[in-house]
Measured scan of single mutants.
Amino acid sequence: MQNSHSGVNQLGGVFVNGRPLPDSTRQKIVELAHSGARPCDISRILQVSNGCVSKILGRYYETGSIRPRAIGGSKPRVATPEVVSKIAQYKRECPSIFAWEIRDRLLSEGVCTNDNIPSVSSINRVLRNLASEKQQMGADGMYDKLRMLNGQTGSWGTRPGWYPGTSVPGQPTQDGCQQQEGGGENTNSISSNGEDSDEAQMRLQLKRKLQRNRTSFTQEQIEALEKEFERTHYPDVFARERLAAKIDLPEARIQVWFSNRRAKWRREEKLRNQRRQASNTPSHIPISSSFSTSVYQPIPQPTTPVSSFTSGSMLGRTDTALTNTYSALPPMPSFTMANNLPMQPPVPSQTSSYSCMLPTSPSVNGRSYDTYTPPHMQTHMNSQPMGTSGTTSTGLISPGVSVPVQVPGSEPDMSQYWPRLQ
């Protein structure tokens, strides 16, 4: 039975679970980093996980050691009161100082060594604690504590007292930064006198190289990059290397530039699409467009005044059976039934097929058609009795279509119309 579990990581490298990497692998990681390889490249070359490479390099940059820390136990506290007071002093002298600059000053002034120097995250935590204590304490208590930490007896009751030896409130920041720059020169002199001055200088240079600022491109470089971006948004590694040799930039910087440029292009394309949609959409909808001609068919113009009344309900007709019959029939052209047409008796099958359309009241044959006459024609229609054979009435077949029909004066039988409509 094995005491430890061995495995293979996602890159194909072998590791022992819970145990640190061998010293030979750690040394190779540092050597590759000094030669300029990126952590992701080191991870692929040595088949070590990216997190492990970053952790080893980060500890090497901070402490200069590649040895693993002790497994188990607690780390001794490195942010001692003396170190905290120095950090507060540096922050007062130059409020814009960075944590890694404070760390360098602690090393250069001999406050800490490589073994007990606090990390950048520890210094940031100390600065946050100082800021929170400043908010919790009152103004007087804060000034007393700062005077105690600074070891001075001057008056701290006013704002300019934060910067000793100065009279203009805006000047101390520059003086403090100048003092810090002077301390940086002392850093070089002190570290050069040490035993491991060369190694420390190499480590600091490598650290500065990794902690780079934003790349500033010249106009020629920007023009070359934009020209390549117009050709393709995704250049391959050969195109990037050719462009890197042409404009004297690292291939990694060119790759990052193209990634950022593609993101910018997507944002601009989104804005262009929004403007295009806004320009195509009308600002207001016309009133006429809300009524579609496919839904509402136009009603033909009436030929006679009587045809303006298109349904039985508008003429005072309360018989719903006839109203439904007229509205359900398709529109037909106007025609006239003459008196000489043969009077065919209704076929029983045809009569039964339209039995649902006729009223059940037996008085329908005896009703006159003056009910369908509009009010303004009552006088004219009353002067001509319906009993004469020459009287013409208008029957409504569908809305908007008038059918003048000659009705025999002897017997106005409704059943004569249905064979004609089939």
Rank of each mutant, 00 (worst) to 15 (best):
residue 2 Q to Y: 09
residue 2 Q to H: 12
residue 3 N to E: 10
residue 4 S to L: 10
residue 5 H to T: 10
residue 5 H to P: 12
residue 5 H to F: 08
residue 6 S to N: 09
residue 7 G to L: 10
residue 7 G to K: 15
residue 8 V to T: 08
residue 8 V to K: 07
residue 9 N to I: 02
residue 9 N to K: 02
residue 9 N to W: 00
residue 10 Q to D: 04
residue 11 L to R: 06
residue 12 G to D: 01
residue 12 G to A: 00
residue 14 V to C: 07
residue 14 V to R: 15
residue 16 V to I: 12
residue 16 V to C: 12
residue 17 N to S: 15
residue 18 G to R: 04
residue 18 G to C: 02
residue 19 R to N: 04
residue 19 R to H: 05
residue 20 P to G: 02
residue 20 P to E: 01
residue 21 L to M: 03
residue 21 L to V: 04
residue 22 P to N: 01
residue 22 P to L: 04
residue 22 P to E: 02
residue 23 D to E: 11
residue 23 D to S: 06
residue 25 T to Y: 05
residue 25 T to A: 08
residue 25 T to W: 04
residue 26 R to M: 03
residue 26 R to G: 02
residue 26 R to K: 01
residue 26 R to P: 01
residue 26 R to D: 02
residue 27 Q to R: 14
residue 27 Q to S: 08
residue 28 K to T: 07
residue 28 K to V: 06
residue 28 K to C: 08
residue 31 E to D: 13
residue 31 E to I: 05
residue 32 L to H: 05
residue 32 L to E: 03
residue 32 L to P: 00
residue 33 A to I: 07
residue 33 A to K: 09
residue 33 A to Q: 08
residue 34 H to Q: 10
residue 34 H to K: 11
residue 34 H to S: 11
residue 35 S to T: 14
residue 35 S to C: 15
residue 35 S to E: 14
residue 36 G to E: 04
residue 36 G to T: 02
residue 36 G to I: 00
residue 36 G to D: 07
residue 37 A to S: 08
residue 38 R to V: 01
residue 39 P to F: 04
residue 39 P to R: 10
residue 39 P to E: 04
residue 40 C to Y: 03
residue 41 D to F: 04
residue 42 I to V: 07
residue 42 I to T: 02
residue 43 S to M: 01
residue 43 S to W: 02
residue 43 S to E: 04
residue 43 S to P: 02
residue 44 R to Q: 07
residue 45 I to Y: 13
residue 45 I to P: 02
residue 45 I to W: 08
residue 45 I to T: 12
residue 45 I to F: 08
residue 46 L to H: 05
residue 46 L to Q: 02
residue 47 Q to L: 14
residue 47 Q to K: 15
residue 48 V to D: 01
residue 48 V to S: 00
residue 49 S to I: 00
residue 50 N to R: 09
residue 50 N to L: 05
residue 52 C to G: 06
residue 52 C to N: 02
residue 52 C to M: 01
residue 53 V to A: 04
residue 53 V to N: 02
residue 53 V to P: 02
residue 54 S to M: 03
residue 55 K to Q: 02
residue 56 I to M: 04
residue 56 I to G: 04
residue 58 G to L: 10
residue 58 G to E: 02
residue 59 R to D: 05
residue 60 Y to A: 00
residue 61 Y to E: 04
residue 61 Y to R: 15
residue 61 Y to F: 07
residue 62 E to Q: 13
residue 63 T to I: 02
residue 63 T to P: 00
residue 64 G to K: 06
residue 64 G to T: 02
residue 64 G to A: 03
residue 64 G to P: 00
residue 65 S to E: 13
residue 66 I to A: 02
residue 66 I to S: 06
residue 66 I to T: 07
residue 66 I to V: 09
residue 67 R to M: 09
residue 67 R to L: 08
residue 67 R to C: 04
residue 67 R to G: 07
residue 70 A to S: 10
residue 70 A to E: 06
residue 71 I to Q: 15
residue 71 I to C: 15
residue 71 I to G: 10
residue 71 I to Y: 08
residue 72 G to A: 01
residue 72 G to E: 03
residue 72 G to C: 05
residue 73 G to T: 02
residue 74 S to M: 02
residue 75 K to D: 01
residue 75 K to P: 02
residue 77 R to F: 02
residue 78 V to D: 00
residue 78 V to Y: 01
residue 78 V to Q: 01
residue 81 P to V: 09
residue 81 P to K: 10
residue 81 P to L: 07
residue 81 P to N: 09
residue 82 E to M: 13
residue 82 E to L: 14
residue 83 V to I: 08
residue 83 V to Y: 00
residue 84 V to P: 03
residue 84 V to L: 05
residue 84 V to R: 10
residue 86 K to A: 15
residue 87 I to T: 08
residue 88 A to V: 08
residue 89 Q to V: 08
residue 90 Y to Q: 07
residue 92 R to W: 10
residue 93 E to H: 09
residue 93 E to R: 10
residue 95 P to Q: 14
residue 97 I to S: 14
residue 97 I to N: 13
residue 98 F to Q: 05
residue 98 F to V: 07
residue 99 A to K: 03
residue 99 A to W: 02
residue 100 W to P: 07
residue 101 E to T: 05
residue 101 E to Y: 08
residue 101 E to Q: 15
residue 103 R to N: 04
residue 103 R to I: 04
residue 103 R to H: 07
residue 103 R to W: 04
residue 104 D to P: 00
residue 104 D to N: 13
residue 105 R to I: 08
residue 105 R to T: 10
residue 106 L to Y: 02
residue 106 L to C: 08
residue 107 L to C: 08
residue 107 L to A: 15
residue 108 S to P: 06
residue 108 S to R: 12
residue 108 S to K: 11
residue 109 E to I: 09
residue 111 V to G: 09
residue 112 C to P: 06
residue 112 C to T: 08
residue 113 T to A: 13
residue 114 N to A: 12
residue 114 N to V: 13
residue 115 D to F: 11
residue 115 D to C: 09
residue 116 N to Y: 09
residue 117 I to E: 07
residue 117 I to Q: 15
residue 117 I to T: 15
residue 118 P to N: 00
residue 120 V to N: 15
residue 121 S to R: 03
residue 122 S to M: 00
residue 122 S to I: 00
residue 123 I to W: 02
residue 123 I to K: 03
residue 123 I to Y: 02
residue 123 I to F: 01
residue 123 I to R: 03
residue 124 N to P: 00
residue 124 N to A: 06
residue 124 N to V: 01
residue 124 N to Y: 11
residue 125 R to M: 01
residue 126 V to K: 06
residue 126 V to M: 07
residue 126 V to S: 07
residue 127 L to A: 09
residue 127 L to Y: 07
residue 128 R to I: 03
residue 129 N to K: 15
residue 129 N to L: 09
residue 130 L to I: 10
residue 131 A to L: 11
residue 131 A to K: 15
residue 132 S to T: 12
residue 133 E to T: 10
residue 133 E to P: 10
residue 134 K to V: 11
residue 134 K to I: 07
residue 135 Q to E: 13
residue 135 Q to W: 10
residue 136 Q to D: 14
residue 136 Q to C: 07
residue 136 Q to S: 13
residue 137 M to I: 11
residue 139 A to P: 09
residue 139 A to C: 12
residue 139 A to N: 14
residue 140 D to G: 10
residue 141 G to T: 11
residue 141 G to W: 12
residue 141 G to L: 12
residue 141 G to K: 09
residue 142 M to R: 12
residue 142 M to A: 12
residue 142 M to I: 11
residue 143 Y to T: 13
residue 143 Y to W: 09
residue 143 Y to Q: 12
residue 143 Y to G: 10
residue 144 D to W: 09
residue 144 D to K: 13
residue 146 L to K: 12
residue 146 L to P: 10
residue 147 R to N: 15
residue 147 R to K: 11
residue 148 M to E: 10
residue 149 L to K: 13
residue 149 L to P: 15
residue 149 L to S: 15
residue 150 N to I: 08
residue 150 N to G: 10
